[in-house]
Design a protein around this nucleic acid. Sequence first.
RNA 1: GCGUGGGUAGUCUAGCGGUAUGACACAGGCCUUCCAAGCCUGUUGCGCGGGUUCGACUCCCGCCCCACGCACCA
Length: 494
Amino acid sequence: MASYDDVMSLSVRRGFLWPAVDLYGGFAGFYDYGHNGVLMRRRWEDLWIETFLGLSDDYHLIDTTTILPEPALKASGHVDHFTDILVTCTRCGESYRGDQLLEAATHEEHEGLTPAEIDARIRDLKIRCPNCKGELGPARPFNMMFPLEVGPTGKDRAYLRPETAQGVYLNFKREFEALRRRLPLGLAIIGRAYRNEISPRQGAYRMREFLQAELQIFFDPATFADGLRFDAVASTPIRIAWATEKNQPGAHDIAAKDLVARDLPPWYVYHLAAVQRFYLDGLQVPRDAFRFAELDEKERAFYNKIHFDIQVKQESLGGFKEVGGVHYRTDHDLKGHEAMSHLKQSVTFGGSKLIPHVLELSFGVDRNIWTLLDLSYSKGERVVLRLPPRIAPVTVGVFPLVNKDGLPEKAEALHANLRKRLTVSYDESGSIGRRYARMDEIGTPFSVTVDHETLEGKGVTVRERDSQKQIRVKEADLTDTLDRLLAGEVTFGA
RNA sequence: GCGUGGGUAGUCUAGCGGUAUGACACAGGCCUUCCAAGCCUGUUGCGCGGGUUCGACUCCCGCCCCACGCACCA
C-alpha cells in the first residue's frame, strides 16, 4: 500500500522521477527522470520490445519525427477532432464545451460547428451559464495539440505530435516495400508525444509531454486470424470489465474463446492475451490488479471500432487506472492519409488489393513506470521496492563487509568485473545493513558481499532483496549464479 | 478552467514581525566479522514577484506549483 506521497517522495529521494524545472517553481504537466528512473525505463522498454516485437519476425521498431506539418494531422483527424470549442462564463469563469451547451439546450447533436456558429446559436437559444446564469463569453477553439511555427516565416503550420502512431502510418508504404511486402506487418515506435492537457494531474499519470510505446499491426482482416495460433490461448482466462462495469472495482475471468463467442475477433482476443501475459508474467502485476476495461461507443474515439483500456489498480492513484489500450483502428488512418496526400495506400497482398487495417497496442511508458513503483512499494521497518529483477535499475550491489583487511580492494575488483555485463553499484560507506537498505529502496534484487571468508577462497555471499536470505557462492560461479537468478532458473526459496 | 486545502534543507517536520527547530538522509572521520548501531565534524532550506514595515518565512496582493473534488481527457 503506497500513497501518492510515498511514491513521489521515494521517487524524488532516490533519483527516479520529479517535477521538471522546479528551480523555477515547476512546470505543470512536465516531469524529468533521474538516473534510476532512466535505467528502470530502459529496462521496461527492453522487455516491451522483447515481448511485442517477439510476437512475429515481421514486427520492427522505427523512429520518426516528433513535429508534424498540418496536412498530416489534418488527414489523421487531429486538427479538427482534437479541438474543443470552449465557451467561458464572463461572470463565474466556468468553461464549457460549446457543443455540449447546445446539446443540453436542444437535445440534438451539434458537431463540427465553427466558433461563430456556436456564438450565433447561443444567442438565438438565449443560453446562459448553467452554473451562475451569467452571460457567456465568445466561443474560442481549444486544440489539445501544441502548435509550432516552422521556418523563418512560420507559414508552414505544424504541431508537436499528439501520438506516435501517425509517424508509423506516414511510413507504412516505405516499410512495406523495404520489408518486402508482407502482411501482417508490425511497426513500433517508442517516443515522445505531446498534448496540451487542460489540467495535468497525478504526477506521471497525465502529462503534457509523455512517452508512448506503440505497436501498429497492419493486416488483412480476411486472413489475419489464420496466421495466429489462437488455439494456444483459447482457454486462457482474460481479465475483463465491461463498459457498464468500469466504475466497479473488479473484473471477470473470461476464457479467450468465450470472448470470441461474444463477437470479438480472434485476432483481437489473441492480442489481449499477449498484453495480459506481458503484465502478469513479465511485469509481475498481481492478477487482481489487472484488467481490460471496455469503452463504449461514446467513450472511444470515432476511428476505434473496438477499444479496451489496459488498466492496473494502484493505491497511489485511487484504483484502476489506464496504462494503455488495445485499439482496432480499422483502415481509418491509412485511408485518411490516402485522401489527403493523393498517394495510394492500398497494397496488393495474397491476390487481393486492400488498404490494410490496423490493430494498435498502445502503452503509456511513464504511466507504466509509475504503476510499477506503486505496486512494488512496500513499507515495513524500511522501504523495499519489490521490482521484478529485470526491471530494477541496478541489478547487483557489491560491498566489502568492513573497510579493512583488503576487503574493499577485493570487492572493487569483483565490481569491476561484474559491471562489464550488469548494472552494478559499489558501496563502502556506512554499515553493511545501511548499504543493503539503500539497495532495497531502489529495488536492487541482489547484493554481493565480500567478507573474510572470501579471502580464504570460500566465495562471497549473495543476498536476496525480498527474503533477506543469503547464500554463499564460489567466486568462479558468481556470474553464472547471478544470471540464473535473474532468469528465474534458480530461486532463494529452496 | 472553477472550488477547497497546501508549499520551511534531499525527505518528513517545528516555528515566529527581529533571516529558523528537530528527525532521517547525505559527505568526511573513528569504530565495526552481515541487515538503516554508536561517536565526532560538516553541507543543504522559508516557491516566485510586489506591497506594508526600521525590519517579512511570518501580514496583504498577484503569480507559480502540488494534492483533492468538479469539468476536461478526439
